[in-house]
Design a protein around this nucleic acid. Structure first.
Lengths: 240, 240
DNA sequence: CGCCGTCTTGCGTAAACCCGCAGCTTGTTG
DNA sequence: CAACAAGCTGCGGGTTTACGCAAGACGGCG
């Protein structure tokens, strides 16, 4: 059995290496990659390897890497090991996981024990292991209560990218008015009207910009999500 | 001599601990804090301590902590040890460093040797040590070429927060038109008109929102900067 | 089938935004 | 002091947003 570790930080990398050795005596080779690009390449070279992947990496982030890896080989087992449980990450991951694939999401703050258990569950037993905290987010976001529809999330990303209503309409194949409807829906859910709605109206917000900020502060968006969305946008722009 | 380590990540924390021991034999006590809040408290308790501080921490980030520490004791020597050299961080740090204070900014990717040298230079020799990469940013941002004025940065933050032109005018004591002037200036510098300015005009951007996005992608803004700005905004809103 | 909720679309309006033009106040420089 | 650059401000107008109102379209359900 082979395990591929994809992780930015040398300290974390060697920690992972040890953890893998301790948790999986049946594993005979451990390979390391220090960014997403190298990770993809090594995954291609070692087709049987299971993967432990950091999400936040400078060169090419974990979600990107995982997507191309899964595209080539959907049955690959990947354990995401991340510092954060931003909804943006969680959403990003669940968007790309293939049907029936075994994967995991464990926070770096988890104990050694938890990490080892997760390693064994996923790589040996093919079971999904999602950190409790992450799991909570996932359910809240999928359940309609307090969560965001895909269409709402989509339009959030679009205004975060800085598109006009018209451009969004064109991109998503909607009328102008429909786009604006979704925006209102979004504004409602993000509670953008806060602080100033009742008394004097002088401190009002620019709803569009405020929505993006609030989403950022709530970790619905983060840098990595923006980066991905921007790449998709450019692709679309080039494709006419 | 005492050294206080303020760092989120247990692995990094113990690495730092060792590095301090190795670089500073004259140091007899090393104290550790796992977030900014605790760091502030321990800094108060151990007034003579030099500090090594991580910037990105979940609970209370390094810039906040450093600010209150320096407010109480401006001669404290602080070495910032960070994963990133986002302009937002660099700007945030240089905004709060007291006149004549000795401080340092070293990236986590630096070698052991570099870290040790920095520790000695700052804590023993009272010299400022700024990582080469960070230094580059600093100069570019202070020099007018390609850099952003304080007023431009200020208005960038304001629209990122989602304020209306009118609200910004009130907050900064300007006329509406002046605010809009600065905005145009900002749009120019951020090169927001890209892609579509020449040929067909269908893929246009909402300049205001686009500016924020571009700033994010260029790391002029990041989560921590937004968080701080939001706190200041709330303060201002409360103060009428 | 008819009723109902959700989603889409068009029309219309008030507000906000982007920005060219031009007059003023400053600080700087020869 | 004259000249000039840089920033602030008001005016005016074209465009984009935010959103109420109301008329279809579609799917589920009794």
């Amino acid at each position: 059995m082979k395990v591929l570790i994809v992780e930015d930080d040398p300290l974390h990398r060697s920690y992972l290496h040890e953890a893998v050795n301790a948790a999986l005596p049946e594993c005979d080779t451990v390979i390391e990659a220090e960014n997403g690009t190298v990770g993809e390449k090594l995954a291609r070279d070692h087709k049987s390897a299971h993967i432990v992947m950091d999400l936040q990496m400078a060169n090419r982030n974990g979600i990107e890497a995982a997507r191309t890896i899964w595209k080539e080989r959907p049955e690959t087992r990947i354990l995401f090991w991340s510092n954060y449980s931003d909804e943006a990450y969680v959403r990003g991951v669940s968007r790309i996981v293939p049907d029936g694939a075994a994967y995991g999401y464990v926070l770096k703050s988890a104990s050694d024990e938890r990490l080892k258990l997760a390693l064994r569950s996923i790589f040996i037993e093919s079971q999904c292991v999602i950190d409790r905290e992450v799991r909570g987010l996932q359910q809240k976001s999928l359940g309609q209560t307090n969560g965001f529809t895909d269409s709402e999330y989509e339009i959030l990303v679009d205004i975060a990218l800085g598109l006009t209503d018209r451009a969004i309409a064109k991109r998503r194949g909607l009328s102008l008015r429909s786009v604006q409807n979704r925006l209102q829906q979004l504004y409602d859910k993000l509670d953008v009207y806060q602080s100033g709605g009742d008394d004097h109206e002088d401190g009002r917000f620019n709803l569009r910009a405020r929505a993006v900020t609030v989403a950022f502060l709530r970790k619905l968006l983060n840098y990595s999500a923006l980066e991905r969305a921007e790449a998709e946008l450019q692709e679309w722009l080039d494709g006419k």
